[in-house]
Design a protein around this nucleic acid. Structure first.
Lengths: 176, 176
DNA sequence: TCATATTTTCAATAAATACTGAAAATACAA
DNA sequence: TTGTATTTTCAGTATTTATTGAAAATATGA
């Protein structure tokens, strides 16, 4: 296979990955464009500028800017400056385990914690009530809370350990 | 506190839970109405009919029907028939651990598996290529695949074990 | 069978979300 | 300063997703 064939095959595979990853992100509740930009950056050998991303994905400047900022907000990408150039370049964290840790922490902060707070408020309201129904209700809320608390701790622990420790744990888990 | 005060406090707490749970579901990428119906059913002492759900949430018959069917599709609720009545009643699985198992299995099937297939296809396309760039690309895809495979196995294992086993595991995890 | 209760479907509509493009704001070099 | 490169904002628009409500389909008892 010639060099240009190789690189066009690679380009195609990458484009495919980017567009498909967008579709997956969509199924996972993540904005399609954001997922595509992320896919582009984790498979890019070089940092990319906003204009390059706009061109590659055929999206507007506003759209690119918004989603790049969101990704920076998640901590999944960061901007780098090249000496002598004014443009911002973006690079993604490529280590899959680190990506997971970042996402786990953020989701915990954005999703689990608020849910726990709501449960706590419902719990407080019915704490004093003595009827059977009230008791069943607060037991159910309790159970949800306890489950979320466990999930929270597991995520927290996983996200702050070395990948190698998790792998060992997984080994144990599958051993029975 | 009088009986009617007790029950109105309970009613309020429950309404609060249902509407807040809808908002949370929304943040987690789940249809608000579906989350609300689910919240209603897991805190209901009795099975409910479509009409009761419509009235409680002030939604249309079509909307109620669609979301009830979706919940049945997930396996999170099921319909029960009362002898001598034509109406369908719905009950939710209330055990939080069982709920988790159901959701884990479904998400694996609906989200992780398709993502893995896409990665596999991208991998296949670039397998033969020898350039540095191509190698980096397929290494990255590999890493993603490996991670998803691990996630898949962990979910699978967790979802098919007893809750008590997971609790023991969690204990170990936090012990260091 | 017919009359009635109940569920399902689906075209129309509403609501939420994502995207564009150009103007405004900002940053920087001369 | 002033001019230029770059980023941000945001009103307007497009697209997607959710919801309604009524008609059609289905199920049931007499």
């Amino acid at each position: 296979m010639k060099n240009d064939e190789t690189s066009s095959t690679l380009r195609e595979a990458r484009q495919d990955f980017v567009s498909q990853w967008g579709a997956i992100g969509n199924a996972w509740g993540i904005n399609r464009t954001m997922a595509q930009i992320h896919a582009l950056l984790i498979t890019s050998p070089e940092p990319l500028t906003t204009d390059e991303i706009m061109a590659e994905l055929r999206i507007s400047r506003g759209n690119a800017n918004t989603n790049l900022r969101d990704l920076v907000g998640w901590g999944l990408i960061r901007s780098v400056l090249r000496p002598g150039e004014r443009k911002e370049y973006f690079v993604a964290e490529k280590d899959v385990w680190k990506m997971f840790c970042i996402i786990a922490r953020e989701r915990k902060r954005r999703e689990i914690t608020p849910a726990m707070e709501i449960l706590q408020r419902c719990r407080d309201k019915t704490r004093g009530l003595k009827s059977r129904e009230a008791k069943d209700f607060s037991d159910q809320i309790d159970a949800l809370q306890e489950f979320l608390r466990l999930a929270e701790r597991i995520l927290e622990t996983a996200a702050s350990s070395e990948q190698s420790k998790i792998m060992k744990l997984a080994a144990k888990l599958f051993a029975g």
